[in-house]
Design a protein around this nucleic acid. Sequence first.
RNA 1: GCGCCUGUAGCUCAGUUGGAUAGAGUACCAGUUUCCGAAACUGGGGGUCACAGGUUCGAUUCCUGUCAGGCGCACCA
Length: 585
Amino acid sequence: MKAKLIKVLEQVVSDLISQGSLPEMTVPEIQIERTKDKAHGDFACNIAMMLARPAKMNPRLIATQIIEALPEVDFITQVDIAGPGFINFTLTANSAQQIVKDVLAAGNQFGRNDLGKGKRVQVEFVSANPTGPLHVGHGRGAAYGSVVSRLLMEVGFDVHREYYVNDAGRQMDILATSVWLRYLAACGEEFTFPSNGYKGDYVLDIAASLKADCGEDLRRTSADVFANVPTDEPDGGDKEQHIDGLIVNAKSSLGDAYSTVFDLGLSSIIAGIKSDLEDFGTEYDEWFSERSLMASGDVDKAVEQLKASGDIVEREGAWWFKSTDYGDEKDRVVVRDNGQTTYFASDIAYHLNKFNRGFDTVIDVWGSDHHGYIPRVKASLTAMGQDAERLKVLLVQFAVLYRGEEKVAMSTRSGQFVTLKELQEEIGKDAARFFYVLRGADQHMDFDLELAKSQSNDNPVYYVQYAHARVCSVFRQLKDRGLSWEKTQGEQNLTRLSESHEQALLTSLSRYPEIVTSAATNYTPHILAHYLMDLARDFHTYYNAHHFIVDDVELSQARLTLITAVKQVIENGLAIIGVDAPDTM
RNA sequence: GCGCCUGUAGCUCAGUUGGAUAGAGUACCAGUUUCCGAAACUGGGGGUCACAGGUUCGAUUCCUGUCAGGCGCACCA
């Protein structure tokens, strides 16, 4: 309807210009928006005010001319001038009611469109290091990434969801060594656990299953394990050198068996992450391994390509990517002087790999602490002849955890954190997802655990779910009374929906497709969550003001038809967010 | 010091891409159930949109500066 109106107005303005009623000028893009206040009709247009300056005419005068020249439009009943020169349009009652039929006809497809035209989009999100279970900080990225993915599917993109597994590198060696040390302790060896090792309970669990698998085959004496290892930090040494020394000893004394420990640690943690995400309503199409990227030679190839183009040069024994040539603030090391490639080298290869897989758009969802990383990744893509604009990095700000007034410190290393699993068990998947998605991603978020736990009934998600359950309850009541809903009869009597509460609901329903499109194209799931709360409120208000099962059969059927449409839209919206729409609470 | 994000009601946050009298939730106060679920509804108070300039018909929104908070500035990942 909006688009139709815009077309009509464009025609009118260009006619006025050719008639000489308006001077020659370039006409700005015509915008139609929904009014905030019902007194201003349903749609408003500000074109008269936009034209006032170039035309050097009074905006109200221009508006008058436009209205006079306006042809009949079938779904508009009234056109007014208001304020400084707004043109307000009021819809006919018929066109407002049409939305109910549209919703019921489309069912769970209502809200979908083909804006994306099947273009392929990759969304990579969470991608936390597999060195421990996911914690609540990852939850926000998981909720955000998965809802953005679903929104993009809803508007017609072919979406590929991916988790990048950082299964290479030093952190993984620290994990493997931590597991082995816990295993040795379980075998009876006595020593002080390194301050920089992973101390979480999950490491103990993995060590226990290692012992169950291998018995004491991997046992070495603690004297051997700690031989020639620099002292740890608490003893006046360096914790990094201490743990690196332990890694070296682990690799040499275990030999081939080291990979047994390493792989058990990795696979245990990945399995845990997968099941935590699944429980959290977050699915993936692919788990992409960093090691596979190295094994395939992609990392070396990417580095060679950039060496050939002169973008990677040797300096002080290391190889540097000259990202300053592309606007970054400093150059970045890709191959260290010890010959090892950096994480950034893998990332260059990974992003090239993504682009080569033929995605039209590549989306990375990152924690905001990685924002400094964007220029160098884009720079590397540009250097390799790719269009860096195709990469969109969406930053998610941190959720700061509180227990009441007290801030919760989180560290994977010390093992003191609240896991995503724990959060789910405390407040449930639905509440957690809705809560995370309720705020804009670029908004710093305070997440008070006490509040989320103790007042979980006040969580907005229940408000929306309750609206859905209430509709279901009405239909249970209908059945109990031996009555039934006749869709055809209801649709024929939609003109009976004349109460202000009903008008408000019709307007809210008609907004849904625009909300989905806007949420998807702007990557802003929170506006969908807010919309659902608004719709639920409109429904609850209506519920309290009017009865649906009434003696007037035609009116009753019309109302039942309306609330069925409301139920459908709530279902569709909640499905995108990944929250259940229960029939009873 | 430089860069990114943020600053809106006591608190947590929206604000439809620059529009009309800045809105919700929560908290507080006062009300609403013989009737489809009160996890609901109705009403009330509460604001220098951090501050100062600028752009224009019009600024919470865009630009500049100042102040405040978060994060980042490794041959770590």
